[in-house]
C-alpha cells in the first residue's frame, strides 16, 4: 500500500485544490439547508417550548435594542449631515428628509441591524452550540431521546426571525429621528417641512419590504450561526473558528441576499 511518490504535475495539484474547495463549499451549503429543513420540520412539532422561545426572543430582541438603536440613530444622523451638505450645493435641502427616510427604511436599517445582530447573536449561537457540541451536551440530548434541532435550534432561529422586523421598525424610527435632529437642530432646516418631506415619498410598501428583508436576514444569520455551532469539531479552537466563521459567513450571505431580495421586492 505504499503511496510511493508519483510525481504530480502542478496542474493535478491545482485541480485537486479546486476540487477540495468545491467539496467544502457543497458541504457547507448542504449543512445550511440540512439545518434549515430540519428547523422548519421540527417547528410545528410538540412539545412547544414556550419558555425557551420567550427567553430567546428577549435575548435577541429586547437585549439588542440599544446596539441596533444606536447604530440606526447615528446612521440617520450621518445621512442627514452628508446629504444636507451635498444637496445644499444645488439648493435641494428640502429632499434631505426624503432621502434619509427612504434609504433607511428600504435599505440601511434592515441591513445594518442584521449585520449588528449577526455580530451579536450569530456569533453567540455558534459559540453556544459549538461548546455544547464539543462537551457532548448535544450528544446527551440525543441520548435523552430529544432531537437537538427541536430543542436548541428551533427556538433560536424562530426568535431571531421574529424579532428582526420589530428591531428594524425601531431602527427606522430612531434613524429618522436622528436625521431630523441633525437637519433641524444643527443645519437649521425647517422642522415642519422636514417632517412633511419625510413622509411625502415614503410608501407603506417601502417599510414593509424592509421588514420582510429583516425577517429573511434573521432567518439566514441564525441558521448560519446554528449550523456553524452544530457541526463544530476540534475543541476550543474549533469553537473559536465556528464563531468567527458564523459572523463572516452570516454577514456575507446577508449582503449577497440583500441584492437579490431588493431585486425581487422593489
Amino acid at each position: 500500500m505504499s503511496a510511493e511518490a508519483v510525481p504530480r504535475s502542478p496542474w493535478t495539484a491545482l485541480f485537486e485544490r479546486i476540487g477540495r474547495h468545491s467539496l467544502n463549499v457543497f458541504e457547507e451549503v448542504g449543512r445550511f439547508f440540512y439545518i434549515l429543513y430540519n428547523t422548519i420540520h421540527w417547528t410545528f412539532r410538540r412539545p412547544f417550548d414556550i419558555r425557551e422561545w420567550v427567553r430567546q426572543m428577549v435575548r435577541v430582541g429586547v437585549d439588542s435594542i440599544p446596539v441596533v438603536g444606536l447604530t440606526a440613530m447615528f446612521t440617520g444622523m450621518v445621512m442627514a449631515l452628508q446629504t444636507y451638505r451635498g444637496f445644499a450645493r444645488f439648493h435641494a435641502e428640502g429632499f434631505v428628509a426624503s432621502v434619509v427616510s427612504l434609504s433607511l427604511t428600504r435599505e440601511l436599517a434592515p441591513v445594518l441591524a442584521s449585520l449588528m445582530i449577526a455580530g451579536r447573536i450569530g456569533s453567540s449561537l455558534a459559540a453556544e452550540l459549538g461548546t455544547m457540541r464539543v462537551t457532548e451536551q448535544i450528544d446527551a440530548l440525543y441520548a435523552m431521546a430529544t432531537e437537538p434541532i427541536h430543542y436548541l435550534v428551533v427556538p433560536r432561529v424562530g426568535a431571531t426571525t421574529l424579532m428582526l422586523p420589530p428591531l428594524v421598525a425601531i431602527a427606522n424610527g430612531l434613524g429618522i429621528f436622528g436625521g431630523y435632529g441633525i437637519a433641524v437642530g444643527l443645519m437649521g432646516a425647517n422642522p415642519i417641512m422636514y417632517w412633511d418631506k419625510t413622509f411625502q415619498f415614503l410608501d407603506l410598501n417601502d417599510v414593509f419590504s424592509g421588514l420582510i428583508k429583516a425577517a429573511v436576514f434573521g432567518l439566514i444569520l441564525s441558521v448560519t450561526g446554528c449550523t456553524k455551532g452544530f457541526f463544530t469539531t476540534g475543541g476550543a479552537e474549533g469553537v473559536g473558528r465556528a464563531t468567527t466563521s458564523a459572523v463572516v459567513m452570516g454577514s456575507v450571505v446577508i449582503l449577497v441576499s440583500d441584492f437579490f431580495l431588493t431585486k425581487i421586492l422593489f
Binding site: 462537551t135 457532548e136 451536551q137 446527551a140 440525543y142 441520548a143 435523552m144 431521546a145 432531537e147
Partner: peptide
Amino acid sequence: DAARSLEIRRKFGMSFQEGALFD
C-alpha cells in the same frame, strides 16, 4: 427511521465522560 430510533433511545440512559451536564 428517525422517529423509531428516538423511541428506541428512550430505553437508554447514558453517562458521558465529563458528565455532559447542561451548563
